[in-house]
Simulated assay, not measured.
Amino acid sequence: MFSLQQVSGNVSRVFIYRDTFESAVAKNVFLVLLGLAINYINGLLIHTYRKHEMFHTNPRYILFAHLVLNDMLQLTFSISLFVMSYTSREIICPLCIIILSLSVWTTHNIPFNLCVMAVECYISVCFPLHHARLCTVKRTYGLIGGIWTLTTIIILPDIFILALTKPPEFFVSVVYCERSSVFGHPVILLKRDVQYLFYLSCIWFILVYTYCHIFFAARSAKTDSKKARNTILLHGFQLSLCMLSYVDHLC
């Protein structure tokens, strides 16, 4: 932790508060065990998906399996960065860039995947006669590919800006592996704030739009509509958690 305090006049000092050894070990052990437990449960879900052929022909289950697999990767990279912040505070720059990029990559995939799932539920409830034609397996895999392509386009400019603004020595040095210290150029930060605001607006608009239509359709008390409504509510909660990372950079 960092704390900036005024000492005298215009002179400021930065005090660094570090966890005790016991506290650091407890935090890391707890987080790693929790991550392993969550990934084990997610692994069982993926195993069940692969085991049953019927899931492979349903766009909803395909999107859910992709979400679970992406969550496993995102959790693994995030915990790795957290543990490295205590154990190996400085690592070689290329490895740090790869880990940070993969972490941001998988983090951005989550809200996009949830949005696609919300739209699929919306079509299923509000346009049931067109669902089989619009939500095909081929189009579902195409949308998943589109999600990864879009998040790649989001990340690549940061890497290009980094390559243009940093000296060659930077990429063979050891760095403190944190996004704010590696990708800390003002242009990158400005781009990040703008894109976060854009995503925050678009994703929530899609979620609210689909939820409202499903909610009104669910008033007929049909079972499928109720299930879809509950699914959208769950997506809304998941998106709320994801959007906290966006809001944090805008505040």
Score class of each variant (00 low, 15 high):
residue 145 G to R: 08
residue 24 A to I: 03
residue 46 I to M: 13
residue 140 T to R: 00
residue 79 I to F: 01
residue 213 H to C: 08
residue 204 W to M: 09
residue 239 L to R: 07
residue 11 V to I: 15
residue 215 F to V: 08
residue 94 P to T: 07
residue 33 L to V: 13
residue 131 H to W: 03
residue 93 C to W: 00
residue 223 T to F: 15
residue 113 N to I: 15
residue 147 I to Q: 05
residue 55 F to H: 09
residue 110 I to A: 09
residue 100 L to W: 01
residue 104 V to P: 02
residue 118 A to R: 03
residue 52 H to M: 04
residue 48 T to W: 06
residue 181 S to G: 03
residue 104 V to M: 00
residue 230 N to G: 06
residue 92 I to F: 04
residue 59 P to S: 01
residue 70 N to K: 04
residue 138 K to P: 03
residue 242 C to L: 09
residue 167 P to G: 06
residue 81 L to G: 06
residue 216 F to R: 07
residue 31 L to C: 06
residue 102 L to G: 04
residue 66 H to L: 04
residue 29 V to K: 11
residue 44 L to D: 09
residue 83 V to I: 14
residue 238 Q to H: 15
residue 87 T to W: 07
residue 59 P to L: 03
residue 192 R to F: 11
residue 21 F to H: 12
residue 206 I to G: 04
residue 50 R to W: 14
residue 116 V to R: 01
residue 91 I to C: 05
residue 223 T to S: 10
residue 199 Y to Q: 09
residue 2 F to A: 12
residue 234 L to K: 10
residue 31 L to T: 08
residue 200 L to W: 02
residue 234 L to Y: 08
residue 239 L to A: 10
residue 30 F to Y: 10
residue 130 H to G: 01
residue 28 N to T: 14
residue 132 A to M: 01
residue 21 F to P: 07
residue 39 N to A: 15
residue 122 Y to F: 15
residue 1 M to I: 12
residue 35 G to H: 08
residue 222 K to C: 02
residue 226 K to G: 04
residue 99 I to T: 15
residue 188 I to Y: 04
residue 196 Y to C: 13
residue 161 I to P: 01
residue 96 C to H: 02
residue 116 V to M: 03
residue 223 T to P: 03
residue 186 P to C: 05
residue 100 L to R: 05
residue 116 V to E: 00
residue 9 G to L: 12
residue 94 P to M: 06
residue 229 R to F: 10
residue 36 L to T: 01
residue 54 M to L: 06
residue 13 R to L: 14
residue 60 R to V: 01
residue 51 K to D: 06
residue 214 I to S: 00
residue 251 C to K: 09
residue 66 H to M: 06
residue 191 K to E: 11
residue 12 S to N: 10
residue 60 R to Q: 07
residue 192 R to Q: 12
residue 13 R to H: 13
residue 181 S to I: 11
residue 243 M to C: 14
residue 103 S to C: 14
residue 231 T to A: 15
residue 231 T to Y: 05
residue 95 L to S: 05
residue 133 R to G: 00
residue 188 I to N: 06
residue 6 Q to S: 15
residue 51 K to P: 02
residue 223 T to K: 11
residue 29 V to C: 07
residue 118 A to G: 15
residue 135 C to L: 07
residue 218 A to H: 02
residue 138 K to L: 12
residue 250 L to Q: 11
residue 219 R to L: 13
residue 220 S to W: 00
residue 151 T to P: 02
residue 165 T to K: 09
residue 47 H to A: 14
residue 166 K to R: 15
residue 236 G to R: 01
residue 9 G to F: 11
residue 182 V to A: 14
residue 52 H to R: 10
residue 246 Y to N: 12
residue 50 R to K: 10
residue 198 F to D: 10
residue 176 Y to A: 14
residue 147 I to G: 08
residue 155 I to A: 11
residue 103 S to I: 00
residue 123 I to A: 00
residue 46 I to N: 07
